[in-house]
Design a protein around this nucleic acid. Sequence first.
DNA 1: TGTACATCAGTGAACGCGCGTTCACTGATGTAC
DNA 2: TGTACATCAGTGAACGCGCGTTCACTGATGTAC
Lengths: 233, 233
Amino acid sequence: MEIEPARPGARARVRAEVTHELLAIAKQHLGIHGAAALSLRAVARDAGMVSSAVYRYFPSRDDLLTALIVDGFEQVAETTARADASVRRNDLRGRWMAIGRAVQAWAIEHPHEYSLIYGTPIPGYAAPEATIVPVQRAAATMVAILSDGVASGAITSQARALSRAEKAALAPVQTAFPDLPPDTLARGLLAWMSLFGMISFELFGHLHNVVDDKAVFFEHELGRLADLVLGTA
Amino acid sequence: MEIEPARPGARARVRAEVTHELLAIAKQHLGIHGAAALSLRAVARDAGMVSSAVYRYFPSRDDLLTALIVDGFEQVAETTARADASVRRNDLRGRWMAIGRAVQAWAIEHPHEYSLIYGTPIPGYAAPEATIVPVQRAAATMVAILSDGVASGAITSQARALSRAEKAALAPVQTAFPDLPPDTLARGLLAWMSLFGMISFELFGHLHNVVDDKAVFFEHELGRLADLVLGTA
DNA sequence: TGTACATCAGTGAACGCGCGTTCACTGATGTAC
DNA sequence: TGTACATCAGTGAACGCGCGTTCACTGATGTAC
């Protein structure tokens, strides 16, 4: 957010360290009290600074939030990428399952960070362009499965053809991945949204008195979504 | 919340009216500023009361929130029930589509109320038992489709059998609907969660730069979920 | 039917709180000659 | 290598704000005899 890239003398290095420390404290506060209660003053207090000093690092509370949001998406991107990398390339189902489990595990470990990026938007806060790239990276791993599947012939476009209007609706994402058939893209997108629907339901308590062993249930339904992604449903 | 059911003399009637008016104002505030910013004082101000007077009606801010949450679930329940009722009974696909569209339309019209009940939980707020019944009512319409489908034979349990552990995981909801096959129940639940995943993605801005015409896209994917619900995928 | 008392809605002032942000400042660290 | 100046991190006090909640009160509405 604020780290000057000037040649890193001692000052710049310390600055980067302090910025990082403030962010770490903010993340911790986020994890305890949630985003709405995140306060510059409290972060400053925990950092052993006076509240106004934080303004040397973050011009406002919103900038702190932006940094946390970017960090959240980067965590998701990293988590999914690592999970994906641990599976044989042509085991597409295994890759989807690994990614799904990874996102879910991350969400359960970092519920407030998950909520910050996939939950209710913060009132009065508008996400700046700085968040665009991390957001895309977070979903990129999943799209890679589709690309690989189409390239290898493991995924073929399904029966259910899309109308002209439906294809047009997908234009933005289609532009980013011109090689993917619209139907494949749409199925991947639906599965992706479903994954987050499942995670949110579990995390936000909507499975209370509905499902007992959430992990078993999640695994089973994640498998069903794999069928959707791969076109084997 | 607070309406005394004593024989409704003039006093009781006025009390009910004022309670209702406070709730209406609170809903309006919710719609403008979001749940986190909902303040007893602001509601009182708009009601032309002094802030302490509100305490005659709601013992605390959390009770006001509870009332709003209950109201939200009731709205969803009503909306889905009305949508469902408008479709021929044995047109199961039509009923699912109607319910899905209704929930989505309601969410778009009442984004803050949607967020209040399906978004990030409010930190420090624990949902009391008063919310249990309305929550169940909201999902009941969807389950009725499953029941009717199973009863008429239109829905049959699918190939993908559930393991013992998977069946056990579904125990709570299975107890409520003992006549539904586990697989049908699981598919309905997944479709339900997916529906909310789609709505949240759209509402919370995650389809920006991904999908253009959200309505067309939603309709298409809702149809895919119908296949899942009905077992025709 | 009328009076005495109890109930209750709403008032107004006050409590203590924490917040984001600004500003003039001090002193230490870096830079240019 | 040493000195003069500029940069910058952090301080401390203050600003104005709105919040939830409590409390003693006034007056109007209901209830019991």
